[in-house]
Design a protein around this nucleic acid. Sequence first.
DNA 1: CTGGATATTGCAACTTTGTTGCAAATTGCT
DNA 2: AGCAATTTGCAACAAAGTTGCAATATCCAG
Lengths: 140, 140
Amino acid sequence: MMETISIDELLRRNQLSITDSRKKILELFQANNGAMAHSDIEKKTDEKFDRVTIYRTLQTFVEKGIIHTIPTPDNSVLYALCKDDCSSTGHHHDNHVHFVCDNCNVTYCLDSVVSPEVNLPGGFKPKVIDVVVTGICKNC
Amino acid sequence: MMETISIDELLRRNQLSITDSRKKILELFQANNGAMAHSDIEKKTDEKFDRVTIYRTLQTFVEKGIIHTIPTPDNSVLYALCKDDCSSTGHHHDNHVHFVCDNCNVTYCLDSVVSPEVNLPGGFKPKVIDVVVTGICKNC
DNA sequence: CTGGATATTGCAACTTTGTTGCAAATTGCT
DNA sequence: AGCAATTTGCAACAAAGTTGCAATATCCAG
């Protein structure tokens, strides 16, 4: 398994041209292993990129399956890197659990924890199960 | 158990004055047993109430535990009626599962389905578990 | 390593969503 | 009915997200 592929390689594999904004934003995701909101990215890039560019870059990454969105209890939009298998197909909402810390407010993707089965009433056919756990994280 | 209490009674029990907007919005929630977004309510009340009033009414209802918010995969804000026990304490994010239909886009509160246990890595202390299932509902 | 087709960016303008302060209207209570 | 306390609507604003288009950067063939 190829753990660390370069950012350029990652972009190339997804048929995306290699641009400053895309590289910078991917770097941020790799540095920050928690999830980030659009506004976090704006701040961490020191307004070097236009707001619109960031929106479009995030959207492109989601479409390509490079990142995924995370539903949060307060309904803000968060993004995090997808793991290997996710990027190939382009389908999202991986089956892992997300954890939001009440204290430090960091959101973790707990890739090792697989979403549990849920028994639904008759007639409901599940496709995707999103699980968001709120509580106190291991660093708090 | 007192299944159906009147809307006026519900408001009175929560120390809220009985006003047109509050009554109308509660009626909508009772008629619609799915969840509603702010914009749904605006439409269904024919713009009879100011946008601000609707925001404030929803906020008040959430604080009193009459309704709760639902995290959705697309990060829009949805509200649904809480069941009996929820209203007393004012704490939210009930432990039931939410189901969003991909086809008709209705969101259901599956009160009978209790959130499953999740095994977290060491150091993570869970408080609330939100489960949102996406798929096809029983009416589609 | 250069030129030009293609993709991406930045800007401006706009829409939608949500917030705040304050005066006017409504509600609850005596 | 009348008065204090809540609630509403308005106006103005802030934040979040979208769209069209011209300018720029990227990629690729030669």
